[in-house]
Amino acid sequence: MRTMAPARKTTTITSIPSQRSPRWNIIATQPNGNFMPHHHTTKDNISVIDRRTMQAVGQTLLNVIYGQPFNY
């Protein structure tokens, strides 16, 4: 699990085990630990994900694809 801490929130990126392909869950929380207001609403979409978080997910994905072979 990798945690990034932008100025106003904490973003946790977790790996979700899957039989077919790896998956990641991006969850942003407020400083008090509560979920962000958009969590699990119609406003919970890619536009609310911080650019730095997307870069961390992309880098992680590239490291997994090129550095860790999958065991299917």
Rank of each mutant, 00 (worst) to 15 (best):
residue 63 N to Q: 07
residue 17 P to T: 10
residue 56 A to C: 08
residue 42 T to D: 11
residue 8 R to A: 12
residue 3 T to Y: 11
residue 23 R to S: 05
residue 9 K to L: 03
residue 3 T to I: 13
residue 21 S to E: 08
residue 35 F to S: 04
residue 64 V to L: 15
residue 2 R to F: 05
residue 23 R to H: 04
residue 52 R to Q: 08
residue 29 T to W: 00
residue 9 K to Y: 11
residue 53 T to R: 05
residue 20 R to K: 01
residue 67 G to E: 02
residue 72 Y to L: 04
residue 35 F to W: 05
residue 19 Q to A: 13
residue 37 P to R: 03
residue 35 F to N: 06
residue 38 H to P: 00
residue 59 Q to P: 00
residue 66 Y to N: 06
residue 30 Q to Y: 00
residue 62 L to H: 10
residue 37 P to N: 05
residue 6 P to E: 09
residue 58 G to V: 04
residue 42 T to K: 05
residue 42 T to Y: 14
residue 43 K to G: 03
residue 36 M to C: 10
residue 10 T to F: 14
residue 28 A to L: 00
residue 72 Y to A: 02
residue 50 D to N: 12
residue 15 S to Y: 15
residue 40 H to A: 01
residue 32 N to M: 04
residue 5 A to F: 06
residue 7 A to M: 06
residue 6 P to D: 10
residue 32 N to Q: 09
residue 45 N to W: 15
residue 34 N to D: 14
residue 34 N to W: 00
residue 19 Q to L: 13
residue 25 N to R: 13
residue 54 M to T: 03
residue 35 F to I: 07
residue 58 G to C: 03
residue 72 Y to I: 00
residue 12 T to M: 11
residue 60 T to N: 04
residue 22 P to E: 11
residue 52 R to N: 13
residue 69 P to D: 06
residue 52 R to K: 10
residue 49 I to L: 10
residue 41 T to F: 08
residue 63 N to Y: 09
residue 66 Y to P: 00
residue 52 R to Y: 05
residue 67 G to M: 02
residue 35 F to K: 08
residue 7 A to R: 15
residue 8 R to N: 14
residue 25 N to Q: 11
residue 27 I to A: 05
residue 10 T to V: 10
residue 14 T to M: 13
residue 18 S to I: 05
residue 56 A to F: 02
residue 29 T to Q: 07
residue 4 M to T: 14
residue 21 S to M: 07
residue 14 T to F: 11
residue 25 N to A: 06
residue 40 H to M: 02
residue 55 Q to S: 08
residue 30 Q to V: 00
residue 68 Q to S: 05
residue 32 N to I: 05
residue 7 A to W: 14
residue 55 Q to T: 10
residue 53 T to W: 04
residue 9 K to C: 06
residue 16 I to G: 05
residue 53 T to P: 01
residue 27 I to T: 08
residue 9 K to H: 10
residue 53 T to D: 05
residue 3 T to W: 09
residue 47 S to G: 04
residue 40 H to Q: 03
residue 54 M to S: 02
residue 68 Q to F: 14
residue 21 S to V: 08
residue 40 H to C: 00
residue 69 P to K: 15
residue 54 M to V: 04
residue 47 S to E: 05
residue 1 M to Y: 13
residue 3 T to Q: 11
residue 67 G to F: 06
residue 70 F to Y: 09
residue 44 D to Q: 06
residue 36 M to Q: 14
residue 31 P to G: 07
residue 44 D to H: 13
residue 19 Q to C: 08
residue 39 H to A: 11
residue 42 T to H: 08
residue 4 M to C: 10
residue 64 V to K: 12
residue 55 Q to E: 11
residue 15 S to F: 15
residue 16 I to P: 02
residue 6 P to G: 08
residue 44 D to W: 14
residue 10 T to K: 15
residue 2 R to G: 00
residue 15 S to M: 14
residue 3 T to N: 07
residue 7 A to D: 07
residue 40 H to G: 00
residue 21 S to H: 09
residue 15 S to G: 07
residue 57 V to F: 08
residue 67 G to N: 04
residue 61 L to C: 02
residue 31 P to R: 15
residue 10 T to Y: 14
residue 35 F to V: 08
residue 26 I to K: 02
residue 11 T to R: 10
residue 67 G to T: 03
residue 22 P to I: 11
residue 64 V to G: 06
residue 69 P to W: 13
residue 20 R to S: 04
residue 2 R to E: 04
residue 14 T to K: 14
residue 40 H to I: 01
